[in-house]
């Protein structure tokens, strides 16, 4: 299996997606192109450059610890695919055990 095909399979599992075989072929080709481009970037010598996650010299942006009103439950919860008056409802999540 090609590298990019493996990546697609891996991400499919991680992201809990279901990808059809046709889509897989298409995505592998696209990811292959992206990887090639990144490889091109790798040609640049960056050994003397510090990894950067923010380009602006701004730090310690914080807020006061004072409460502000939350939003109304009715308004938010109705946006969920499934909910009752109080809770969001999701497929059952059960911790599965093996006796060992």
């Amino acid at each position: 299996m090609s590298d990019s095909k493996q990546i697609v399979n891996h991400v499919e599992k991680l992201a809990l997606l279901e990808i059809s075989p046709e889509e897989k072929d298409r995505f592998s080709e696209q990811i292959g192109k992206i990887l090639k481009f990144v490889e091109k970037l790798n040609e640049l010598d960056t050994t003397k450059i510090k990894p950067t996650s923010h380009i602006l010299p701004v730090q310690n942006v914080t807020r006061r610890d004072s409460p502000v009103p939350s939003i109304s439950r009715e308004n938010v919860i109705k946006l969920a695919p499934e909910a009752n008056n109080e809770f969001y409802i999701v497929p059952p999540v059960i911790q599965e055990f093996q006796e060992a």
Binding site: P67, V68, S70, R73, E86
Partner: peptide, 19 residues
């Protein structure tokens, strides 16, 4: 309040009212 927003962290509030 919570770490990134002003919602209250009080314990025992009605479900989904501090969001």
């Amino acid at each position: 309040t919570k770490i990134f927003c002003g919602c209250s962290t009080k314990f025992g509030l009605l479900p989904n009212t501090s969001i």
